[in-house]
Design a protein around this nucleic acid. Sequence first.
DNA 1: GCCGGGAAATTGGTCCTACCAGATTGGTGG
DNA 2: CCACCAATCTGGTAGGACCAATTTCCCGGC
Lengths: 248, 248
Amino acid sequence: MKSVPKPEIVPAGEGESSALIKQLMGYVAERRLRAGDRLPSERDLAEQFGVGRNAIREAVTSLQTLRLVERRPNSGLYLLAEQEHGSLDAILLHSDLGIPMNEEEVGEVVELRRMLEMQAVTLACERHRPEHVARLDAALRLGAEALATGRNFAAADEAFHLSVVDAAGNRLFRRLVNSFYLFTRKRRVHYFENGERAPLSHAQHMALRDAIVARDVARATAVMGGHLQALGSYWLTLIGRPQKDMEP
Amino acid sequence: MKSVPKPEIVPAGEGESSALIKQLMGYVAERRLRAGDRLPSERDLAEQFGVGRNAIREAVTSLQTLRLVERRPNSGLYLLAEQEHGSLDAILLHSDLGIPMNEEEVGEVVELRRMLEMQAVTLACERHRPEHVARLDAALRLGAEALATGRNFAAADEAFHLSVVDAAGNRLFRRLVNSFYLFTRKRRVHYFENGERAPLSHAQHMALRDAIVARDVARATAVMGGHLQALGSYWLTLIGRPQKDMEP
DNA sequence: GCCGGGAAATTGGTCCTACCAGATTGGTGG
DNA sequence: CCACCAATCTGGTAGGACCAATTTCCCGGC
């Protein structure tokens, strides 16, 4: 039998195994280490965290893949110039881990999402085909169901927005947007824990769907703009607040 | 002494250490493994590739961070639904490794870059400040120097475009674009090995700089559009050709 | 006092063995 | 035919042992 235990996708550093990634990023954050600074050796880190060197190496490998850490053989581990390089996942991981962000960083996240969504809805208007409309409608049904049953609206929200991106017809672009949604999932769930928000979002989704189907770019972007407005102000209320504050 | 041996930033799976990543991706590509398929166990892979299990685990950790592979404890390694999830770095890594892409994929890469650059130049027009102009000019000087000395124009090209993104004033956005440039660097170097291309690009850069400084969004986007046109047609000539063909 | 050189310590990179916990598998006995 | 248990296989982890290259430091010679 080929039972699929957990098809759920999860950001890079999730689960207990990669708790070390969080610990390492916390270590860096606490000590205010800056780009170019050297970290303790793998052996030291292993001792400090009470784990084997193997586990440390795995965590460092992840951070290296995210372009946050550089390994210099016979020298040590160094923080990479975070501002310059560093993958998109890396900074989004910060948000996902609940590392506080300042106003500027939050603003940049919100703005980048706005850029991506606006582009998506524009392309969706121009290119969507019947099967895309079907997916939009399926996502809307999911939303209506969530509203009816009182379930959290986050999954339906994701499904709808990704359907829009699907309609844009660029799978690479879709991946990019998906990264965004992946790493902001916790925030989104929290956002919709306020039950008043879901109905409004759902209504805007329906309006958006109609505008896209009508290929009315102006209307669609206008609706999307208003839709993202509410999200932007929500994010701004989170400034400096670690994610732990979300669910007590 | 704190000598810095190699401050050069390099994509995720570079250097000899991560040759295993390429081997693993090649293994998947050769066997036409699809999303959800199971890979051999770590022990088997270690034996097949003639390395220790440790090395395999490190490579798999990278692929996991790129969301290409999923580890299911007590079960095995599974290819993740590549279409759905998978980080931007992951697909760009394909290009960087020289894995052939079909016309659709190439088109998507070109289009995504176009979207990002257009957005960048628009924002740059609106927001640029004096220091950004200085950086644009510095990049232009680099380009002029490369033209004069006959050096490859790729670095100067990168510097200029990243200066434009800098002027857009969103560092998260800058990271995103930087990822793009990081993983397409080899292609860019190859592109400018044809000496006729650099002068044209440089001229367009200068025109772009003037339009940005004049805050003339229409002109700037027009110039950028034309600038990217040439690049797009170059990329299309690479369809199905592995990167090895680039420098023999 | 200064300088040179070599030994020792340190670093990441790799391999190996061993064990664990959970899942799967396969056979065995009811 | 089904229930149950043991063997097996999986990734996860710890720890030891090297290697090669670099750095550090002390000691001897000048």
